[in-house]
Simulated assay, not measured.
Amino acid sequence: MAGFNGIIGHEQIIEHLRNAIQLKKVSHAYILDGEEGAGKKMLAAAFAQTLQCEEGGTEPCGHCHSCKQAESGNQPDIIYVSHEKPNSIGVEEIREQLCGDILIRPYSSPWKIYIVDEAEKMTVQAQNALLKTIEEPPAYGIILLLTTNADAFLPTILSRCVTLRLRPVRDALIRDYLMEQLHVPDYQADVCTAFARGNVGRARKLAESEQFTELKDHVVHLMRHIDDMEISEITDAVRRVTEYKTEIEDYLDLIMLWYRDVLLFKATQKIDGLVFSDEINYISARAKKSSYEGLETIIKALEKAKVRLKANVNFELTMELLLLTIKEN
C-alpha cells in the first residue's frame, strides 16, 4: 500500500481528503462513488491508513506500527464490513459488524474506521439501521461507503454523507502507468488505455488478460485482410467470431477503435493519436480506400450490430451483414 502517492489520478478527491485531515474537518461519513476498478478501495485504504498513522501527516509514513498493520490488513481499528450473500448486504450484517461494533472505543488509534464495499447492495432495512449510526456517530467513528451507484442509497443517507464522485483518469496517466509500472509495450498500452475509458483498474486487467490480447489479435488480423476476402471467407470469419460470442461487445468496440483510427488518419495524415499506430500501413491503406461517407456507414453499421445483438437478433446473420458492410465500404 503506497498511500495517496501511489494512486493514479483522482487529484481533486485526494486534495479534498488531505485538506480534511490537515484542517481537522474530517466527516463521519463519506460516499466514494465510481465504477468498478476506478480506485475506490485504494482511496479508502489510503485515507484510513493516513488517519491512523502515528506521524499525523497527510500521507501515511509507512513505517509506524499502525501503518505496518494497515499494510498487512491487520489494523484493528480499520474494519472492512463483509457480507455472505453476493447480491445483498443485510440488516444483521450492518448491525453486528458496524452499528454495534462502533460503540466500542478504538483499540489503539484515534479513529475507528469502517469501509463498506459494494454498499449499494445494502437492503433498505440495512440502510435504515446505518442511518441511526450516521445521525449520531461517536466522535471517533468514520464510515466509508464504496459504491458503483450512489442513487441506490436512501435520500436520508445521501444527505448525511460527503459524496466524492470518481472521474475518469486522463489517458496519458494510464498509459504511463501501464508502460512504466507494468512494463506493457507501447502499442499494447495504447489499446488498453483507449479501451479502459479512464478506468485504471480496467486498464490493468486488460493489460494482464491473455484472453483480451487474443481477442485484439483476432480483430486486427480480420481488419488487415477483410478487403481481400471472398464471400466464402467472410462466412468462415463469422464462424470464428462465434468463439468470442460472450465478449462480442469488446470485439465490436475494438473494430470501432480501428475505424476511429482510419478516420483520424484520413483527416490528419498523422500517426499521432492513433490507437493502432503499429498497424499504420493497414490503417493508411484503408483510409485511402474508404470515403468519409463509407467510414460513416461502417461506424453506423457497428452501432446497429450492437443494438441487434442486444435485441437477440440472429448472431451469425448480424455479424455477416456487418462484415459485408465493412468490406463494401
Rank of each mutant, 00 (worst) to 15 (best):
E303H: 13
Y114W: 00
M319N: 09
S109H: 06
I31H: 14
V200F: 06
L263P: 06
H16K: 15
K85T: 14
A126N: 06
K306V: 05
Q69C: 06
Q269E: 02
L324Q: 13
K245P: 06
D77F: 01
D101Q: 13
D176M: 01
L98E: 02
K288I: 00
A126L: 09
A305E: 02
D117R: 13
M122V: 07
H183C: 01
K216L: 03
H63I: 14
E279C: 08
M1T: 14
R286C: 14
K205E: 14
C192H: 12
S88H: 13
K85N: 11
N281A: 15
N5D: 09
Q97G: 08
K327T: 15
S209I: 08
L43A: 05
Y282R: 05
I142Q: 03
L274Y: 03
A189T: 07
K289D: 12
A237V: 01
E210K: 15
F315Y: 11
V116E: 02
K304M: 08
L164N: 05
K327F: 11
E230F: 02
L98Y: 07
L145S: 14
E92D: 15
A301F: 03
L166V: 05
E93A: 15
G56W: 02
F212E: 10
Q52M: 11
K85P: 04
Q75C: 10
Q69V: 00
H10L: 00
A126D: 08
I255S: 10
L103A: 13
G34M: 12
Q12Y: 10
Y251K: 10
V200A: 06
M122W: 02
F195E: 12
